[in-house]
């Protein structure tokens, strides 16, 4: 599973380089995120730009990662593709996470 992390503007930006976050890799994702998050940073940004498909297992894994953060640390999501954003919206999980709006390029692509 491709997961890369770098410090950027005071935040730890973690990018999941997988086309799918689903039942097949949900547990692996949780485990690797737990390791990545050992790096101290109060702000964590999970970049899901590469993820075109999210199922309920993948969603559960993201929730689990967020719940595992110590108090005072914050998880933000960014780069939600159309399908991924819809899963968050349908399950009302968009109200729980801090989700950064996509840039104009993405908005344009999604509208088309």
């Amino acid at each position: 599973m491709k997961l890369s992390a770098e410090a950027c503007d005071g935040a730890l930006v973690v990018r999941l380089g997988e086309a799918r976050l689903d039942a097949a890799i949900a547990i692996q994702f949780k485990d690797q995120m737990r390791e990545v998050l050992l790096q101290p940073s109060p702000r964590v940004v999970l970049d899901l730009s590469d993820v075109g498909f999210l199922d309920s297992s993948g969603l559960g894994a993201i929730v689990s990662v967020m719940k595992g953060l110590s108090p005072g640390r914050k998880l933000e999501l960014r780069g939600l593709t159309t399908n991924v954003e819809k899963v968050f919206r349908l399950t009302r999980m968009d109200s729980v996470f801090s989700i950064r709006a996509n840039g104009p390029d993405t908005a344009l692509r999604d509208a088309g």
Partner: peptide, 8 residues
Amino acid sequence: DLPEGGFG
């Protein structure tokens, strides 16, 4: 207490 399942 956030749910990690029950969405399927």
